[in-house]
Design a binder for these strands. Structure first.
Length: 617
RNA sequence: GCCCCCGUAGCUCAGUGGAUAGAGCGACGGUUUCCUAAACCGUAGGUCGCAGGUUCGAUCCCUGCCGGGGGUACCA
């Protein structure tokens, strides 16, 4: 190791962090010497302009900040770049990690390359590290992640999958980053759907069916009563039994609301029915979560907050925020002529706005979060806008400085571009969705004769569920996405199976070589990165921490999937082009270490998305 | 009416105030005495909806228009 090279484990932080730090130092020095005018507040925005290059021929990292600074400084962009480049080598840690940028390129780009010895040292450190070289956040925050939140007593359907999958992935990622994460399944267990089921129970239940499969019977009642209560002619025309029921009960819609109101008011019979229905509903939901490998710290549903609702409204009224209008009570956030944020209906019932306000108050009091994330459908944007503004006006203790964020996502569409439905027009049940994904994965896996029946089933489950989750996560969450089994189960391209396959290939080569991975790790092998494919793989591996930071910044898991895909591709190119087991030393051991690290990074990355891996497939 | 989102290759989608706009599928071509070819390499394919504006630089930011979707007082 040379005198100016890395002395031991590299400095904390990603390469990007270290380079941004060096630029911050250079900027501060230029400012102190009167060369560049920089307000302290501008610094973060400036160093953000240090990022990985689009094309490796420009080096590994690139700074574009000189062009913007030039105007303020009254200098030419290239001159500004030169001033910064001159001061970089003196910044702590720069010379050990990066090669100095040469002359500015183009209008004033500064391109920087990671030193090969620093790259090898960083790989060695990551290889020996449980966290795979990913730094933890400097300041851990308490972050509540509110996701999934299905309506109990309605079967979970395709509409629930995005919130569940995206929310779970974000929670896992934030936790790995070092934050204190509190996941909460804010169940819809107190809404009108119970009025429907209670009404259905009283008028048209099938006791034998309920005894045999409670949730199936409750689901049937829900679907039936919804049609009867809504009384849409086209629905009734398609369903004679619903039509007959609707004819006998023309007031069903009103009666359903009355049953709901009675439940909320504490009516003994309805309350008893609710208590009877709940365990079966929860068991059904929990089975799905087990299959999806999703768990929660808390299950504080709407019913939990029900005792606080009257007080929430009274408090809002006493502070002059909420007032009566057309018999209801609401907060007029945008003046008298715009729809208010209703917290109590004319019939006295509370709404989910009321529950959400009570929930914010409760979470602030009990969890003292720095952030609360709501992973919910983008169609509820207006609700959250009103909710957050109301909370701010409410002046709750502990709300100052707390970020309330609606992490919105688009709708799941079918091939026809319309919301994903079965051919008969019903929403697709989540369970049958998973079954079909696993079934299709199984057909693909079955082609491989090397696996025993049970292992094939496990692989099919992991690949099928992974495909469905990945398809959801790999898309920008704000856009709608078209659900297609064919696409998500492609074995090439940006799919879970491609990444899982890369992991299995790592396993295969290590197994074939009879490699003891723990011993390999303890031996602290020297890393050589002579071939461009080795270097490209190494650089990608070390971006893990940067990517997770970016995921957190915008709550976008698809940045992680995109990077994993890139990483798996680089591994495939490395694996295809270079011998590992048959390479001479020291390349052989170095490549084994790279393969092992790649396998662990891919597995961890997929794990952070809630996606499993297999040893063979 | 008002508010929000979207419009990028034939299809499904990434992307971003920066250098020549990317990937998969589909099409065409190549690679296997070699560790999982479920792979790899290559070719073809784009006025980034249209028109202005801001900028050294715009697919990205602003304005208008066109097209699609969603929301818009007592469901969640």
């Amino acid at each position: 190791m040379t005198a100016d090279g890395p002395q031991q484990a590299p400095a904390a932080g990603t390469f990007r962090d270290r380079l941004r730090g060096a630029f911050a130092t250079a900027l501060a020095a230029a400012h102190a010497e009167g060369v560049l005018p920089i307000a302290a507040g501008d610094l973060p925005g400036l160093v953000d302009q240090v990022r990985e290059t689009a094309d490796p021929k420009f080096g590994d990292y690139s700074a574009t900040l000189a062009m913007g600074l030039a105007k303020k400084a009254g200098k030419k962009p290239r001159d500004v770049a030169v001033e910064l480049a001159r001061r970089l080598p003196a910044a702590p840690g720069f010379a050990a990690t990066f090669t100095p940028p040469g002359d500015p390129v183009g209008p004033g780009f500064l391109n920087v390359r990671v030193r090969d010895d620093a790259l090898a040292a960083a790989i060695s450190a990551a290889f020996a590290d449980e966290r795979l070289g990913v730094p933890a956040v400097a300041r851990a925050e308490t972050i509540v992640v509110d996701f999934s939140s299905p309506n109990v007593a309605k079967p979970m359907h395709v509409g629930h999958i995005r919130s569940t999958v995206i929310g779970d992935a974000l929670a896992r990622i934030l936790r790995f980053r070092g934050h204190r994460v509190v996941t909460d399944n804010h169940l819809g267990d107190w809404g009108t759907q119970f009025g429907m089921i209670i009404w259905g129970w009283k008028h048209c239940r099938d006791d034998a069916a309920f005894a045999a499969d409670p949730t199936a019977e409750l689901g049937r009642l829900y679907r039936l009563v919804r049609k009867v209560a809504d009384a849409k002619p086209e629905d009734l025309a398609a369903d004679p039994s619903a039509a007959a029921l609707a004819a006998r009960h023309p007031d069903a819609g009103r009666e359903v609301l009355e049953e709901t109101a009675k439940l909320h008011a504490g009516d003994a019979e309805n309350r008893a029915l609710w208590q009877r229905f709940m365990p079966a509903c929860l068991a059904d939901i929990e089975r799905l979560y087990r299959r999806l490998d999703v768990s929660f710290d808390h299950w504080l549903g709407e019913s939990f907050f029900q005792p606080f609702l009257a007080d929430v409204v009274a408090d809002l009224e006493s502070r002059g925020l909420a007032r009566e209008s057309r018999g209801a009570t609401g907060i007029f956030l945008d003046g008298d002529d715009k729809p208010p944020f209703l917290v109590r209906k004319a019939d006295g019932a509370f709404l989910y706005a009321t529950t959400d306000l009570a929930t914010i108050r409760w979470r602030l009091e009990h969890w003292r979060p720095d952030r609360i994330l709501y992973v919910v459908d983008h169609r509820q944007g207006q609700h959250f806008d009103q909710l957050f503004r109301t909370a701010a006006r409410w002046g709750l203790p502990g709300l100052d400085g707390v970020a309330l964020v609606h992490v919105a996502f688009g709708t799941v569409l079918g091939d026809d571009g319309k919301p994903f439905k079965t051919r008969s027009g019903d929403t697709v049940g989540l369970e049958s969705l998973l079954d079909e994904g696993v079934e299709r994965a199984g057909q693909l896996v079955a082609a491989d004769e090397g696996l025993a029946a049970e292992e094939r089933r496990n692989v099919a489950e992991t690949v099928g569920i992974g495909a469905i989750k990945y398809a959801d996560l790999c898309q920008n969450r704000t856009t709608d996405y078209v659900f297609s089994y064919d696409k998500m189960l492609e074995l090439k391209g940006n799919t879970a199976a491609y990444m899982q396959y890369a992991v299995a290939r790592v396993e295969g080569v290590l197994e074939k070589g009879g490699v003891d991975r723990d011993a390999l790790r303890r031996s602290a092998p020297a890393i050589t990165l002579a071939d461009p494919r080795e270097r490209a793989l190494a650089l990608a591996l070390l971006r893990f921490g940067e990517v997770l930071e970016d995921v957190e910044a915008d709550y976008r898991p698809n940045l992680l999937t995109a990077w994993l895909y890139d990483l798996a591709g680089r591994y495939s190119a490395f694996y295809d082009g270079l011998p590992i087991l048959k390479a001479p030393e020291p390349e052989r051991t170095s490549r084994l270490a790279l393969a092992d690290l790649t396998g662990r990074v891919l597995r961890r990355g997929l794990e952070l998305l809630g996606i499993g891996t297999v040893r063979r497939m």
